[in-house]
Amino acid sequence: MLTVYLSGEIHTDWRQQIMHGAAALDLPITFTSAVTDHETSDAAGDVLGQESQPFWRDHKSAKVNAIRTKTLLEKCDVAVIRFGDKYKQWNAAFDAGYCAALGKPYITLHAEDLIHPLKEVDGSAMAWAQTAEQVVEVLKYITSKQ
């Protein structure tokens, strides 16, 4: 069983496309992910006490989220890191760097127009995909018994 961590933008259904594609092919994969509900993620540190300044609320929540992300990235076999065009995904770039530091293979998923800004991130990736279907095909290949 392969464990695949899905990192990156939360505004499109790319995660569902990959999970459905893998399920349709009956691939032996368990998927994990960051919390994809923006409000839940922003409130992750609220259990540690209220903050009067937004910076400190974000700071606490980022650290609580980092516990989850760090643990799941360390446990995964492969990560898929998605960069969308609407927002800058600094967290995804950080996840890619962490994977590179761990020697953890990762696949980047982004459009062709992001090649230049992501050249260093792609430089350490084991594959660059432009579609969720391409990611599924790579996962199919690496889980095949041949």
Score class of each variant (00 low, 15 high):
A43R: 12
G84H: 03
T69H: 07
H59G: 03
L73D: 00
A96Y: 01
A92H: 06
I115Q: 10
A43S: 14
S41M: 08
G8Q: 04
W128F: 08
V135H: 02
A62G: 15
Q134C: 06
K119Y: 14
G8D: 06
L109D: 11
A100Q: 14
G45C: 03
A125V: 05
D46S: 13
A127G: 04
K63F: 12
F83H: 10
T108H: 03
Q146W: 08
I29N: 00
G21F: 04
A129Y: 05
A100T: 12
H110W: 12
Y106N: 00
A127R: 15
A129D: 04
A125M: 02
H116N: 10
A111Q: 14
D37V: 14
A66W: 01
V80K: 01
I142N: 04
S61N: 04
M19W: 01
I10K: 08
A101F: 13
I29W: 00
D58A: 14
T30F: 08
L6D: 07
V121Q: 05
S52E: 14
F94E: 09
Q16C: 05
E74W: 08
D37P: 03
H110A: 09
L139C: 02
F31S: 01
R15H: 07
H59A: 14
G123W: 01
L27M: 10
Q134I: 09
I10R: 14
K63Y: 11
D77I: 09
F55A: 13
W90Q: 12
R15F: 01
P117H: 00
L73W: 02
L139P: 01
I81F: 00
Q134P: 05
L6C: 06
A100C: 14
S33A: 15
D77Y: 08
W128I: 15
D85A: 12
L102V: 08
A96V: 03
V35M: 13
A111S: 14
L118R: 03
T108N: 03
S41P: 06
I81P: 00
L25F: 07
W14K: 05
T71A: 12
V135P: 02
K60T: 07
I29E: 00
I10H: 07
W14E: 06
Q130R: 15
E51P: 03
T143F: 02
L114R: 14
D77S: 12
I107H: 00
D26P: 03
N91P: 06
F94G: 06
